[in-house]
């Protein structure tokens, strides 16, 4: 549905986005993850045709944004970082204006309006002036604006920023409800958000993609296994012996008897470790593999990039 091919953007000699490529299939929710200033907003702006790319192409439904921006823009709903609201307008009039702006046929406007208001939970504020609403409601008005024309592709730039936890949960719920019918690209620097909503994730740092995969794939990947070891009778000697085993990348000794280990995947380290532990007579209680959380993956990828740069 959305094809981004070698997209780059430079301002002067400062490169913001470099050689970014990814595809989003119909009905997918793609999480666009990266620290602040990684180039998420710039990439999204290029997909929406707000700014032109320095190189590369972005296609929505096979149409190049720079060649036919109006055709692309009639297929997308876009919520930019700061909700694009007119503070002096009443919620309903604002949404009516957006419906006209997005060329929703007049006959369908009423239904589309009601749907957006209902989906975003704006029923009891629809006759109020936007400027008088709380930040959370303004964000919801922004979301309503994006989903109003029932676009094929929904692009949301940090849709939950600045909201309280309850509101965040609500907005996430709304976005999940949209999935299936609509393709969603969502940027965020909050990790749990991606695992909560998205089906796929693209991690970007300093303008470049550092990883992209499904959520399951990305947390399973990597060249190491995390293992948790629990023994009944801990001793300093045991710690020495584990270290001496070889193939241990990192060892953290937590409460007595509990070790967090990071092992090389190669060389049957896990097998040798279990053998040694049983032999030592320390009383092995637990040896369990631990999945890396997305947070680990993210931190590793991003810090690796940092040391390389």
């Amino acid at each position: 549905m959305v094809n981004v091919d070698k997209l780059s953007k430079a301002y002067g000699n400062r490169v913001c986005v470099w050689d970014v490529s990814f595809d989003v299939a119909r009905g997918e929710i793609l999480g666009f993850l990266g620290p602040n200033g990684a180039g998420k907003t710039t990439t999204m702006r290029m997909i929406t045709g707000f700014i032109p790319p320095s190189a590369g192409t972005a296609r929505v439904a096979g149409v190049d944004v720079t060649k036919d921006p109006l055709s692309v823009q009639s297929r997308i709903g876009y919520l930019c970082e700061a909700p694009p609201i007119y503070r002096e307008m009443v919620v309903k009039s604002y949404l009516k204006f957006v419906a006209g702006l997005k060329r929703v046929p007049r006959a369908k406007q009423k239904v589309a309006l009601e749907r957006a208001i209902e989906l975003c939970g704006l029923e009891h504020v629809q006759n109020r002036v936007i400027g008088n609403l709380s930040k959370g409601y303004r964000q919801r008005v922004g979301l309503a604006q994006a989903i109003l024309p029932e676009p094929e592709v929904l692009i949301l730039d940090e849709p939950t920023s600045g909201l309280d936890p309850l509101q965040i949960m609500e907005i996430r719920q709304r976005i999940r409800e949209l999935s299936g019918e609509q393709t969603v690209i969502l940027s965020t620097h909050i990790l749990p958000e991606v695992t909560a909503i998205c089906t796929r994730v693209v991690i970007i740092n300093e303008g470049q993609i550092v990883a992209q995969d499904s959520i399951d794939g990305i947390t399973a990947g990597g060249a190491s296994d995390n293992v948790k070891v629990k023994v009944a009778r801990d001793s300093d000697d045991l710690a020495q012996r584990i270290k001496a085993l070889g193939g241990i990348q990192r060892m953290v000794r937590g409460e007595p008897g509990v070790y967090q280990l990071k092992l090389d995947r190669e060389g049957e380290v896990r097998e040798r470790l279990s053998g040694m532990l049983v032999e030592s007579g320390a009383g092995l209680i637990e040896l369990s593999p631990e999945r890396e959380t997305l947070e680990d993956v993210f931190r590793n990828l991003v810090t690796e990039e940092d040391t390389a740069a």
Partner: peptide, 14 residues
């Protein structure tokens, strides 16, 4: 200033 330019310029109008 309000960021509404981003709405207008990503809408299907010239």
């Amino acid at each position: 200033k309000n960021g509404t330019a981003e709405l207008l310029m990503t809408s299907p109008i010239t």
